[in-house]
Computed example of a mutant assay.
Amino acid sequence: MSQTESIVRMDAEGRLHRVGPDGAFEPVEVPPVPPMGEAEIVASAAADADNPPITPEDVARLRRVPRTKTLRRALRLTQEEFAARYHIPLGTLRDWEQGRTEPDQPARAYLRVIANDPEGTRRALEKPKG
């Protein structure tokens, strides 16, 4: 038995076509995949060694990404830049981002203000020139 190489392309409608040696397209019939039931989905996920399903124990040990870090990254600022721009002590920001402490209620409100209007907040904090 010899092995041959086939080139298959997908058209804009999602149909597959085999490209022949002469460049001609030949439709490839692919039978539809039957839908899986819940038990089959769970069994298939459990059998995938590279990406096993998350167990409740896994969830308990996972650390969520603090929103402060997400906000800072969305603004494309380093910790030092974010802390200086919004007058937050650098150590406090690091503690929040590393999960050692949580922002208290006023700090969470301030972070929401920053998230809603980062430039307006920055301008409001600038010292007036003169």
Rank of each mutant, 00 (worst) to 15 (best):
A45W: 11
L77Y: 02
L16R: 10
V30P: 02
A49Q: 13
P53A: 01
P52Q: 10
R9V: 07
Q3E: 12
D117I: 08
E97I: 04
R112A: 14
D104C: 12
I7E: 04
A12D: 00
D50A: 15
A84W: 10
I88T: 07
H87F: 04
V65G: 05
A39I: 03
L75G: 02
V33F: 10
N116F: 08
D58W: 11
G130D: 05
P103E: 08
A115G: 04
H17D: 06
P52N: 12
L71H: 03
E126Q: 14
I88S: 05
L111S: 08
L90I: 13
T78N: 07
R72C: 03
E97R: 05
V113A: 11
V30L: 12
G130L: 06
A12H: 00
W96C: 00
Y86A: 00
V19P: 03
R94D: 07
K127G: 02
M36K: 10
P34Y: 09
V8W: 08
H87Q: 07
D104F: 09
I54V: 15
E97S: 03
L62V: 10
P56N: 12
A109Q: 07
R108W: 01
R122P: 02
E81G: 03
V8L: 06
R63L: 10
E80T: 04
R73Q: 15
A109C: 01
V33S: 10
L75S: 04
E26C: 12
A109H: 05
S2C: 02
G20K: 08
R112Q: 15
V19H: 00
N116P: 01
T101Q: 14
E5G: 06
G37R: 02
G20Q: 11
